[in-house]
């Protein structure tokens, strides 16, 4: 694994923004790094919507928010001196995405953490950066935590958890 290949796994949360900001500060003015900002799509739960149209509408709103976030994240990194060509955005759609066509690489949605790690392994990323929000243990038990699972399952790479 190449430690200078850095993967930042994000959603559109403040914690993800902090993780991006941390990498930007750390690498400011450095060269030789390649940074990928990764988002694994988690569409709104289809069962929560009365009809297909309202589900698609919610999916579109979410996608717009995420894509805006990803662009802002890239701007944050390049704004601190990283070369634009060394910063890549990766958006992995859900396999049943309401807004994105089926792609060769898609997420089944069963575990975002496993999807992140699969992307990291395939891309030979030696450093994985992820934000963490302070969840209670109860919440972590009941709903799980992507960050916790990533730190438990990650192999052959360094994981930076930004809180």
């Amino acid at each position: 694994m190449d430690a200078k290949k850095i993967l930042i796994a994000v959603d559109a949360s403040e914690n993800a923004a902090r993780a991006v900001g941390y990498v930007a500060d750390l690498l400011a003015g450095s060269s030789g790094f390649a940074v990928t900002i990764l988002y694994i799509e988690r569409p709104p739960n289809r069962d929560l919507f009365a009809d297909e149209a309202s589900w698609i509408e919610a999916g579109q709103a979410q996608e717009l928010r995420i894509r805006t976030f990803l662009q802002q994240a890239k701007t944050t990194l390049t704004g601190r001196g990283l070369a634009p060509q060394s910063v890549t955005i990766a958006y992995v759609p859900h396999c049943q995405s309401p807004v994105n066509d089926a792609a060769a690489e898609c997420s089944l949605g069963t575990s975002i953490a496993r999807d992140i790690l699969q992307f990291q392994q395939r891309g030979d990323f030696g450093t994985l950066v992820i934000g963490r929000r302070g969840v209670s243990r109860a919440e972590e038990f009941l709903f799980g935590s992507v960050t916790t699972k990533v730190t438990h399952l990650a192999k052959d790479c360094t994981v930076w958890v930004v809180q």
Binding site: P44, N45, D47, L48, G109, T110, S111, I112, A113, F141, L142, F143, G144, S145, V146, K149
Partner: peptide, 15 residues
């Protein structure tokens, strides 16, 4: 009943 799933979609059932 349903809710927005997160990383452990079955945790609430197990609880």
């Amino acid at each position: 009943y349903t809710y927005e799933f997160r990383e452990s979609p079955f945790g609430l059932d197990i609880f």
